[in-house]
C-alpha cells in the first residue's frame, strides 16, 4: 500500500543538531508553550486555509503555504480509528505527533497523513494523543523534506531537543517494515528449464500456504486497482498471506495463462485459501463486507 511513512535519513537531522543556530542553553526549556491549548477539535478539516501565513515571513526557504509548527493547531487523535479520516487529510505533508502531556514525540512526512497517523495510533497509541498537520501543496520529495526540516528546526530552536522519535536509532515510529513479505516466485527464472510443470508448482504453492493472492504487481505496489483492493482487504484484516505477482515475466513466466486454466477463473487477482480458489476482487470485497474473512489466519 502506498501509505507508508516516508523514511527519514538521519543525515539532515545530524546536520541540524550541529547547526550553529541552535543555542545549547535552549535545552532547559522542555515544556512546550502550546501544551495547555490541547483541546479536541471537531473541525472536519484540520487545515484552516485562512490561517496560512502570508508569504515572505520568517522562513522564506519553505513554501509560504506551510504554517509554522507553533502556529498550527493540534488536532486530537480520536479513539475510534474510523473517525481518523474525517479529522486528518489523506494528503501529503508533514505532521507532528504529541503525547498526552503535550510533548512532541515525532515529526514525520507522509504521502497519506491520515493513514500514517492511523498506523502510529495502532502501534504506539499511548504516544499519539494529538497531531499537528501541515499539508504540502506540491509534494515532491524536496518540498516534503523542506517542510519536515522547517518544523524540526523550529522545534529544536525552541526547545533544543530532537523529538524522541526522530533520534537516530529510534524505531518507535519509523518501522523498517518487516511485515512486508517478499512476493513469492514460482520459478527460478524464465530461462531455466522447469523440471516440474507450472501447474504443479501452482498446486504446491496454494496447498502449502494457507492464503495466497495472485495479483498484478507486487504486494507493496499493486499495479491494478482490483489487486490493490484485495491487498488492502487482506492487510486490513491482518491476514497472514503470501502474494505472487502474475506480471513478473522473469520469475513467473507463463503464470497468467496457466493459472487461469488451473483455477478455471478468467481474471486476476485470485485468492486461494487452503488450496481452493475463493474468488477475485468482487468476492473478496463481498466477504469482507459480510465479515466472513475474520476466520482467516492472522499474522
Amino acid at each position: 500500500m502506498a501509505t507508508s511513512t516516508v523514511g527519514l535519513s538521519p543525515s539532515p537531522l545530524r546536520s541540524l543538531t550541529s547547526s550553529p543556530s541552535l543555542p545549547p542553553r535552549a535545552r532547559i526549556a522542555p515544556s512546550l508553550p502550546f501544551a495547555s491549548r490541547l483541546k479536541p477539535r471537531l473541525a472536519l478539516s484540520p487545515l484552516p486555509a485562512a490561517r496560512r501565513r502570508p508569504a515572505g515571513t520568517r522562513r522564506p526557504r519553505v513554501s509560504a503555504a506551510l504554517t509554522s509548527l507553533s502556529e498550527t493547531e493540534p488536532v486530537s487523535v480520536p479513539a475510534d480509528s474510523g473517525e481518523l479520516a474525517g479529522r486528518f487529510p489523506s494528503a501529503s505533508g508533514v505532521y507532528a505527533v504529541y503525547d498526552g502531556a503535550g510533548e512532541l514525540q515525532f515529526v514525520g512526512i507522509s504521502r497519506n497523513i491520515a493513514a500514517s497517523i492511523a498506523g502510529h495510533r495502532r502501534s504506539v497509541p499511548e504516544l499519539c494523543c494529538s497531531v499537528k498537520v501541515g499539508v504540502v501543496d506540491e509534494p515532491d520529495r524536496v518540498a516534503l523534506t523542506q517542510a519536515w526540516k522547517s518544523w524540526m528546526e523550529e522545534h529544536m530552536t525552541a526547545t533544543g531537543k530532537v523529538p524522541p522519535g526522530n533520534e537516530s536509532g529510534n524505531t518507535t515510529w519509523i518501522r523498517q517494515p518487516p511485515k512486508k513479505k517478499p512476493d513469492l516466485r514460482l520459478t527460478p527464472g524464465r530461462h531455466m528449464q522447469l523440471t516440474v510443470p507450472l501447474e504443479e508448482l501452482i498446486d504446491r504453492l496454494v496447498k502449502e500456504n494457507k492464503v495466497v493472492a495472485f495479483i498484478k504487481g507486487s504486494r507493496s505496489a499493486p499495479m491494478c486497482g482490483f489487486s490493490q483492493r484485495v491487498i488492502g482487504i487482506l492487510e486490513s484484516e491482518g491476514v497472514d498471506y503470501e502474494s505472487v505477482d502474475v506480471l513478473d515475466e522473469e520469475y513467473n513466466y507463463g503464470l497468467r495463462e496457466t493459472l487461469k486454466k488451473y483455477s478455471n477463473w478468467p481474471t486476476f487477482p485470485q485468492v486461494f485459501v487452503d488450496g481452493e480458489l475463493v474468488g477475485g476482487c468482487d468476492i473478496l470485497t463481498s466477504m469482507y463486507e459480510k465479515g466472513e474473512l475474520s476466520g482467516l489466519s492472522k499474522k
Binding site: 478455471n264 477463473w265 480458489l277 475463493v278 474468488g279 477475485g280 468482487d282 468476492i283 463481498s286
Partner: peptide
C-alpha cells in the same frame, strides 16, 4: 450455489 460458483 456459492458465490464463487455463481461468478463462474
Amino acid at each position: 450455489k456459492r458465490l464463487l460458483e455463481r461468478h463462474r
